[in-house]
């Protein structure tokens, strides 16, 4: 039961032109896999083959060991959550009706649907009484995006697919939305496959990162591995060498490397990343910062952590 999604030799050709070529990987239950690549790398096509919006030329997708072709496409898609860039909310339906789309298709009772809508609105920090009956065009960009994700999660899918879900948001709202998504995903235990062109987003969210280039999967592994041992020059370029240490620092929470000691000044949160700890040190001119709930993070520890394996390898 640990292999939630298994993708086997998936290939898509359009009139002979290759969009996705022989891609295989597995995503474990409850994890987040981020598909990264430049535009035209085939990452979106790959994602859309999982819920069969695109029919593969060859290959298989197994969900909990079951071939995705054992169901008609539209029934398969009702079991898989799907959220896209620019949200795609139905402009003629209220927030509640939008969220209720799949439960209604599945024939849930009115009571069940109402409860589920309120539950999701609360989960996404939207007051049900205020938002239930609004039309999509009356919401801000960030709110629309949250409703889009809530709609995708409405029928409690075990698997959620997202295609650049935060692409249309401005940076401040995007960071918050990523944070919320991570929390909600952990809370619900949903398996998530996410397409993004932004390596930072992939590093922040992904338990696994799949790097796509020209239709092929060039590397698949945990973020630290991608960052410290890029498989090809393409992956290295995609990471950006100047960003690499910061990406790496952003993977670890402060409490994980906190050591005994005392440091002056305001503490940082336990869950704050090392990247934030470094920023705090540099900005305040301190050589160490205290962590909430005890311990400190020192500049030296940060330095050591920024690229330990990479330096050893080179």
């Amino acid at each position: 039961m640990s292999d939630m999604i298994e993708i086997r030799n998936l290939t898509k050709r359009y009139d002979g032109a290759v969009a996705v070529e022989d891609v295989s990987f597995t995503v474990e239950s409850g994890q987040i896999a981020a598909l990264v690549g430049t535009s035209g790398s085939g990452k979106t096509t790959l994602l859309r083959m999982i819920n069969r919006l695109v029919e593969p030329t060859s290959g298989q997708v197994l969900i909990d060991g079951e071939d995705s072709h054992s169901l008609p496409g539209y029934l398969l898609r009702r079991r898989i959550g799907y959220a896209i860039q620019g949200h795609g909310l139905f402009p003629h339906r209220t927030v509640a009706q939008n969220i209720a789309t799949v439960p209604r298709l599945l024939g849930w009772s009115a009571d069940q649907i109402r409860d589920r809508v309120d539950e999701l609105l609360n989960l996404f920090q939207l007051d049900p009484d205020a938002f239930r009956d609004r039309m999509p065009h009356e919401l801000s960009g960030g709110q629309q995006q949250r409703v889009g994700v809530a709609r995708a999660l409405a029928a409690k899918p075990d698997l959620l697919l997202m295609d650049e879900p935060f692409g249309a948001l401005d940076p401040v709202i995007r960071a918050k939305a990523q944070d919320d998504l991570r929390h909600i995903q952990r809370q619900l235990g949903t398996t998530l496959i996410l397409v993004t062109h932004d390596m930072e987003e992939a590093v922040t969210l992904g338990d696994r990162i799949a790097v796509m280039d020209k239709g092929r999967l060039v590397q698949y592994g945990p973020p630290s591995e991608i960052l410290t041992a890029p498989a090809t020059p393409f992956v290295r370029d995609l990471i950006g060498m100047r960003e690499r240490p910061f990406h790496l620092l952003s993977l670890t929470p402060a409490h994980a490397i906190a050591t005994e000691g005392e440091a002056p000044g305001a503490p940082i949160a336990r869950d704050a990343s090392l990247r934030e700890a470094l920023a705090e040190c540099l900005w305040s001119g301190r050589s160490a910062v205290p962590v909430e709930g005890g311990g400190i993070v020192t500049l030296a520890a940060l330095q050591a952590h920024a690229a330990p394996t990479a330096r050893a390898a080179e």
Partner: peptide, 8 residues
């Protein structure tokens, strides 16, 4: 896209 993706 969203309509198709949700299984309508």
């Amino acid at each position: 896209e969203a309509a198709r993706g949700m299984g309508l």
